[in-house]
Design a protein around this nucleic acid. Structure first.
Lengths: 238, 238
DNA sequence: TGTATTTTTATTGTCGACATGATTTGGCGT
DNA sequence: ACGCCAAATCATGTCGACAATAAAAATACA
């Protein structure tokens, strides 16, 4: 493995910013984009060589990631990228749906004009991504769109759990990336639009209904992908 | 500060078990019991001297605690025990109530006989603590009682958030520890009993109702303590 | 040849020391 | 006396090396 990222090139900037935090951000990003495959082992010395820093900040980043459930640490042995937990998907869908509803409700209740502006901007960005058929960008912006709604809801407990769920969902969507067609993203675009309008006019019940329907759409989509080729379950390490 | 705990005495056992994990457990316990005051600074070298180990495992423990929000780290400066965030209490109550309801509902739906046995045992322990007027034990067992219900519900996302909320609530209850009288714990005891029975007979709607009422009780109690001098609950929506 | 046991190996866990950066202290000029 | 700049301070951030541990490999034995 001599994959040379842009990390060790500019050591100067890395020193300035932060040794440990940079590793955390990079790894997090790579895990969520499946650049690092779920279940693949993570070697500390390899990472320290790759980033050109010692193991101490690497370990700090790994401990943080373990706290968020993005990596799993086997005591005294090794640590690996958190596998996708297919048996627990029903629980995941349940929690995701509830958080969709709660955060959207709260956003409708508590949003400020600034919140609406931020959400609108992300909605526009999503529209552009759909237009450009940029799937990676769609997944990323979609996540930020809902995270912004959660923040507008002004409850950090919900927001943090929701963001964690959205990140996990991002990995799932990436898995079924290739199956994407043009129709679904456009449907989501319309649902997002309805959602923004409900939030803007502070219609809590409508926001709730739309959020629940939206969550149902996504859950059904992922479920459909999974049941379609169930051989994926066999391939992926659990 | 020459507070000498039982930590550095038996270095042998500490080496065997786990350097870092022990520090984490100890600090976590001390934070939740207000042995470490909210907002008080944490000095790494002091801790390393106290536990008789180097700073590296201390830092690892602090990073973990920071991930759970139990300590706050100021970059390049110092880290302190997470202050109790009074302005955010309404959000806390909202999330706590929802998690009470959701976990109890799920427990009623999914509980196994083993789950019921575990819950019953904790309920009995709570009854004994009430009888003995052991407030510290009551707070601890109460937390474990609800955590057991959450685990019976079989959704780790809810369970983890709920346990975090229960821990934060434990600090709040500790704060108003002195105000405890005999009546409220006995009321809780009865509510717990109703809750266990609803879970046992898998009556989801009843479980939901009881959980909501129970949450309301606790929220109102804490609010009453707090608003004795400041009226924070003006805009709480229930 | 198969199995139990020892040795090796690879990786994590911990250590003590140094580097860095922000705050505080002390000196200087006005 | 007041405010500004420099130097000391002090906790954190990082480093390279060592120790502990669990899996794998090698060896001994039946």
């Amino acid at each position: 493995m001599t994959v040379t990222g842009p990390e060790q090139a500019d050591q100067t900037k890395r020193k300035r910013g932060k040794g440990a935090g940079a590793v955390y951000d990079t790894l997090r990003h790579e895990i969520l984009n499946l650049t690092l495959a779920p279940g693949s082992p993570i070697d500390e010395v390899r990472l320290s060589e790759r980033f050109g820093i010692s193991r101490t900040p690497i370990r700090e980043a790994l401990v943080k990631l373990a706290g968020e459930g993005l990596v799993v640490t086997l005591a005294n042995r090794f640590t690996l990228v958190a596998p996708i937990d297919f048996p627990n998907l029903p629980q995941f869908f349940d929690a995701l749906t509830l958080m969709y509803r709660v955060t959207t409700r709260l956003a409708a209740a508590n949003r400020t004009p600034d919140d609406v502006a931020v959400i609108r901007r992300l909605q526009d960005a999503y529209a552009r991504a759909v237009e450009a058929r940029d799937v990676a960008e769609m997944i990323e912006v979609n996540r930020n769109f809902h995270a912004a709604i959660a923040r507008a809801g002004n409850n950090r407990y919900y927001a943090e759990l929701f963001e964690r769920l959205l990140d996990e969902g991002r990995r799932l969507l990436r898995l079924y990336y290739s199956s994407f067609n043009d129709d679904l993203p456009r449907a989501y675009l319309q649902e997002h639009e309805d959602m923004v309008q409900a939030i803007e006019r502070q219609d809590i019940e409508a926001a709730d209904r739309i959020a629940e329907a939206h969550a149902g759409q996504i859950v059904r989509q992922i479920q459909a992908y999974i049941t379609r080729d169930s051989r994926l379950n066999a391939d992926i390490r659990l």
